[in-house]
Simulated assay, not measured.
Amino acid sequence: MELVEQLFDKDEEEDIIAQIPISSSSSSDKMIWKGTSQKIVDHPKCTIFNLEEETTTHALWECELARDVWSQCSKSLQKSHFSQMNMLEIFEAIARTMDTNCLQEFAMVAKQIWWRRNDFIFNQMFKHPNVVVSATYQNLKMLKELEVQRSASSRPNNSSIIEWQAPPMHFHKLNWDAVVDRTRAGVGIGTVVRNYEGKIVATMRRSQCMFRLPSLAEAYGALQVVSFAMDLGLTKVIVEGDSLQTIQALKKEEDQLNYFGMFVSEANLGALLIGMLLMLKGVAMW
């Protein structure tokens, strides 16, 4: 970290570098993404009109073609004028002055405008503003339906409650969960170990400065659980978690070249060494 502090003056840059996950083993580095000339523009001008500098604010808000889309939105957004403000400041202003529906509409429209821009750059296809607005309202409708479903599923239902089950005789069960702390730019991991009688044998909790991604936190948690089991000298182990994505990733034998693949691969190796059984909410996966 001393070298990082010497090379980078801004605290924000140092914090971002410090959050990059590093392998805890001697695994070799892998190239996960390769930038290509097709993905990088060779000039800073507007992609479509090639006149003004294309900042994020210009592409999503100020460009005439973007304004054509915003002019078909709700009246609150149509009448909004934000001069000399970047997109974050515009978002914050809308969040302060408008309701949740307008905020959701703003986010959806901005996403559709960005996708339209990418379609034009990479596929030479340009969508009419009506198509963009129509796709936005379809997505907003789906979002509302999803919110209704979540509200209904959050109601207590005794028939859907899964009770914790003790492991077989001479086995230990490790339950873990991960949480993302967005204010402190880190993740927290909690683990509890119980024997076949249901008695708590050991607990572990750990925090780590890391990118605030739930999937990365769950994968890091899985690695910590496996390491904890190995430190305790456990050989007959059942690990139970509630992240389907992480459990399925741990089942795969090949390397996964994504942002949490390093943790998954290391946890997978440790699980194989001690004959670990993975479970998802009481359902055996291995």
Score class of each variant (00 low, 15 high):
2 E>P: 01
4 V>H: 12
21 P>F: 04
22 I>N: 04
23 S>C: 06
26 S>K: 13
27 S>P: 00
30 K>L: 06
32 I>W: 14
33 W>H: 13
34 K>G: 08
34 K>L: 12
34 K>W: 08
38 Q>N: 14
43 H>A: 06
43 H>Y: 10
45 K>W: 14
45 K>D: 05
45 K>I: 03
49 F>I: 03
50 N>C: 03
64 E>K: 13
64 E>A: 14
76 S>H: 01
83 S>V: 09
84 Q>K: 15
85 M>H: 14
88 L>Q: 07
98 M>E: 12
101 N>Y: 12
101 N>S: 10
102 C>T: 15
102 C>Q: 11
106 F>M: 14
107 A>V: 11
109 V>N: 02
110 A>K: 05
111 K>C: 06
127 K>M: 11
127 K>W: 07
127 K>T: 06
130 N>L: 07
133 V>F: 02
137 Y>E: 10
139 N>R: 04
152 A>P: 00
152 A>Q: 06
153 S>V: 00
155 R>S: 15
156 P>Y: 14
159 S>L: 08
164 W>L: 04
166 A>T: 14
169 M>A: 10
174 L>V: 11
185 A>I: 00
187 V>Y: 05
187 V>W: 01
188 G>N: 02
188 G>S: 11
189 I>L: 05
190 G>D: 08
192 V>H: 05
192 V>Y: 09
193 V>F: 03
193 V>I: 04
197 E>A: 08
198 G>T: 02
200 I>E: 10
206 R>H: 13
208 Q>R: 11
208 Q>H: 11
219 A>Q: 05
220 Y>R: 11
221 G>F: 00
225 V>K: 01
230 M>H: 07
230 M>F: 05
232 L>N: 02
232 L>C: 04
235 T>D: 10
236 K>D: 07
247 I>P: 01
247 I>E: 01
249 A>T: 00
250 L>E: 04
251 K>F: 08
254 E>H: 15
256 Q>Y: 00
257 L>V: 05
257 L>E: 07
259 Y>S: 15
263 F>S: 07
269 L>R: 13
271 A>M: 04
273 L>K: 08
275 G>H: 09
280 L>T: 00
284 A>T: 02
284 A>Q: 15
